[in-house]
Design a protein around this nucleic acid. Structure first.
Lengths: 189, 189
DNA sequence: TGGAACTGGGGACATTTGTCCTTTTTTACT
DNA sequence: AGTAAAAAAGGACAAATGTCCCCAGTTCCA
């Protein structure tokens, strides 16, 4: 649930320390809850997380949110939109304070055209995300909330993630009321 | 819901008509319901659909199935597993009679290493699948079955897809009983 | 310090969905 | 055509989930 990608982090660090590129790469700080990508709007930059945790979520028209994933060190944002030349798929906001590298779409496209290493990294990352996203979709559709919550709590503990109840509910795609009920169910064993 | 990819189809056709490659590419026929990839097992070949429709589905331990997507002309299968060097993510079976090109993992890897065009095609395809899969996950979690069914019926009609009720239920991640109820609800308007 | 306003949790009830089993419809064979 | 077997649909009840609202605890301000 909290994805990270060390290879990407090394990649962007190398790029950043290369004199030919350093001036095209910015480092930005974001405060907790700052939303830096908005569903449906144009994407101006590609981001790679240097430090901290972001969440990536859909806001549906009925007012409910669904958290797709939590992204940590080395995760890239905006690449899907750049590849498909489309508006932003979902919202992205800072869960902790965040430090990100940002590069322009143009540079990203140039790199994609000539750098096989970046292509490989992207393919691996997208393939991994497909695996996560699709297995989770299947699991959440076919099992009860209790199962989903059990898995979520396990992952949260393993990864030492601090999560608000709102975020947990949005990750499971259920209401707060249902989450509270399920949590209560757990304390009974 | 029924994905196709003409660019991939042209790509594999060109490859197939190239004397250097033609003997490494096979064309196979599959009968309705034949399952040619199995969740958890090793993937031996990469497939590209020449003609017909396949379904790609998870079988969960509780005996339920979840259909991830329907794949038509030009769609590729097994590429995620090749990229991540992992066992097969989900089952794939023929919905109609099927004609597929198949190539070895080895050739696929060689091509990925040297052919930028293939890399681009793969990136685009994976990005598009992420968009579909994740928007659908969100929608299905946050809306009622009726909404999901409405969308499904619409897509089915638009794409002239013939679907069994079992497949419709598995696509929505619900039981047959619930599907029947929802369908009845529709006829009332 | 009193009280208004906000927040999180949970009760009560409605709705949705699943399970189990019976009924109805279809198929297949003689 | 008539009947047995198989498949599909649906009724009845149980379980899960959502909605609405109230209550207790906290915060914040005058």
């Amino acid at each position: 649930m909290l994805r990270t990608n060390n290879e990407f982090l090394s990649y962007i660090k190398e790029l950043y320390s290369d004199d030919a590129y350093t001036r095209y790469i910015k480092v930005q700080q974001l405060t907790v809850d700052a939303q830096f990508l908005t569903q449906g709007e144009r994407v101006h930059q590609i981001y790679i997380i240097k430090e901290g945790i972001a969440k990536c979520f859909f806001s549906e028209e009925n007012g409910k949110d669904y958290i797709l994933e939590f992204l940590g060190k080395g995760e890239i944002l905006g690449e899907i939109e750049a590849i498909r030349e489309m508006p932003c798929l979902c919202n992205v906001a800072a869960v902790t304070t965040l430090e990100v590298y940002s590069i322009s779409i143009k540079l990203f496209n140039d790199l994609m055209d000539k750098d096989m290493r970046l292509n490989k990294l992207l393919l691996k990352e997208l393939a991994e995300r497909m695996v996560n996203t699709s297995s989770r979709a299947s699991f959440q559709q076919l099992y009860t909330v209790e199962h989903g919550l059990a898995k979520l709590l396990e992952l949260r503990d393993k990864q030492q993630l601090q999560l608000s109840k709102e975020d947990m509910a949005a990750y499971l795609g259920i209401t707060l009321r249902s989450l509270n009920r399920a949590l209560k169910g757990f304390s009974h064993h």
